[in-house]
Amino acid sequence: MRRIYINEDYCIGCRLCEIYCLVQHSHSQKIIKAYKEELPRPLARVLVEEQGYLSFALQCRHCEDAPCIEACITGAIGRDSNTGAVLCDENRCVGCWMCIMICPFGVINMNTEGKKVASKCDLCYGEEEPVCVKNCPNEALVYEER
């Protein structure tokens, strides 16, 4: 499957990926509205880690042997048979946070505003390319089949 790969050598920690991700996963999909008006406030599903000169953007790795799928008590987290992406069906999620407990990358977040659900990268379902990749100025994120 196509996955997002990280080139940490090119990441400058600009966090554009976080901004585009948040907007993409907002209701309005408009940057000002998403940041200033929407309730519950949308969450970015990508996270930039930074320390000194080292930084990288991190989102769900869509593991082949995904621990979150087996830990999910509702069956809400599963693999999309078309894209191979690991997706969370927010209608079925009850917010038990077993996935947060088990994800060794720490890339699933609590969305506690509104209905409590686990929030994670969906590879921008339906888009040709995830917005974090598309808008990275340095190709520090690439989306490809390896």
């Binding site: 880690e49 790795r61 593991c63 042997d65 720490g106």
Partner: peptide, 24 residues
């Protein structure tokens, strides 16, 4: 507060979960 994968040894974070392309 800012603890994350970045603090971990690189050879560990590159191979947390087995499988093709699953690395950080």
């Amino acid at each position: 507060e800012d603890f994350g994968l970045l603090w971990l040894p690189q050879d560990y974070r590159k191979h947390i979960v087995e499988g093709p392309g699953i690395e950080v």
